[in-house]
């Protein structure tokens, strides 16, 4: 029998081509067509792309998207890391905290949206009632500020546990000797964190940041259910914009072009962050 290791790669290759490659090609094809219901599609080159890039609504959605993802990252990553470090390292507490953390992750996206929707409703919701008690008038359907921080809080509640789990696994893998050496070297808790925990978690943190970045960039179901993109278009993110364009507005070609632009932005930002984090703090000079 000849040895054919490439045979083992075949299923994976097939799967990737069906799930990613073929749809991508289709979208690329669509993006250069003008596709309106009831008319014959015709080739319109880069017209769709130009139109989208000039569209104010697109730019606004992109801007909101970038701000949203940025806020997600700067809260969820430190919060997740902090929680992971505070978690018990052994004993019965480990299992309990893992289960508690796991619960939000098990709930489907749209269900999360519905839970928060009920939670924040002005008639029966607990949240407006609670705020009312403090004298603050909470209005998710009319206040942009309230809508924004609620969407953010929902995302933090839903996804920080993932960051905690990733960081916790990373922390558990740091050899105890590093902490012993830091003790002997009289390092303060902050320096121990800065020079032992953080560098050893670099790889793990890159994964957490990239996962959260890509996921938050693609956020769709939760805000769609919670706020429907409003008030106005104040919580309309890129995915909501894209689906409205393609399905709501029946402009398949333009929708496809939006998807492609969207796709390249995600790749670009992820790549930049990956490169920056990879080189961060690597063998920096004798700094204090």
């Amino acid at each position: 029998m000849k040895q054919r290791p490439w045979l083992f790669l075949l299923p994976a290759l097939l799967l990737v081509s069906i799930s990613a490659f073929i749809p991508l090609i289709t979208v690329m094809n669509y993006s250069q067509l003008t596709l309106l219901p009831g008319t014959e599609p015709y080739f319109s080159g880069l017209e769709n792309f130009v139109a989208i890039l000039e569209d104010e609504a697109f730019r606004a959605a992109l801007g909101r998207q970038v701000i949203f993802s940025f806020l997600v990252l700067i809260t969820e990553i430190p919060l997740g890391l902090g929680l992971a470090m505070a978690m018990p390292k052994e004993g019965p507490g480990v299992g309990l905290s893992l289960v508690l953390l796991g619960i939000p992750l098990l709930i489907p996206w749209n269900v999360v949206g519905i839970i928060w929707r009920v939670f924040t409703r002005s008639d029966i919701g607990v949240l407006p009632a609670a705020f009312d008690w403090f004298g603050y008038s909470y209005e998710i359907s009319s206040s942009t500020f309230d809508a924004w921080w609620t969407v953010l809080a929902m995302d933090i509640w839903h996804w920080t546990p993932l960051v905690v789990l990733i960081c916790y696994a990373g922390i558990q893998a740091i050899p105890e000797e590093y902490y012993m050496a830091a003790k002997i070297d009289r390092a303060s808790p902050w320096k121990t964190f800065r020079y032992v925990t953080l560098p050893n978690l670099r790889g793990v943190l890159i994964i957490a940041v990239l996962l959260r970045l890509m996921d938050s960039f693609k956020i769709y179901a939760e805000p769609f259910v919670l706020t429907g993109g409003g008030p106005g278009s104040s919580t309309t993110f890129l995915s909501t914009y894209t689906s409205r364009m393609a399905i709501g507005g029946f402009q398949m070609g333009r929708g496809a072009a939006t998807s492609l632009i969207y796709f390249f932005i995600v790749i670009l930002i992820s790549f930049v962050i990956y490169i920056v984090m990879l080189n961060l703090g690597q063998g920096a000079g004798g700094d204090q």
Binding site: E177, A181, Y195, L198, P199, G283, A284, G286
Partner: peptide
């Protein structure tokens, strides 16, 4: 220690 414990974010 048994394996070299080094702070590898510093030179």
């Amino acid at each position: 220690f048994q394996f070299p414990v080094i702070y590898d974010s510093m030179d």
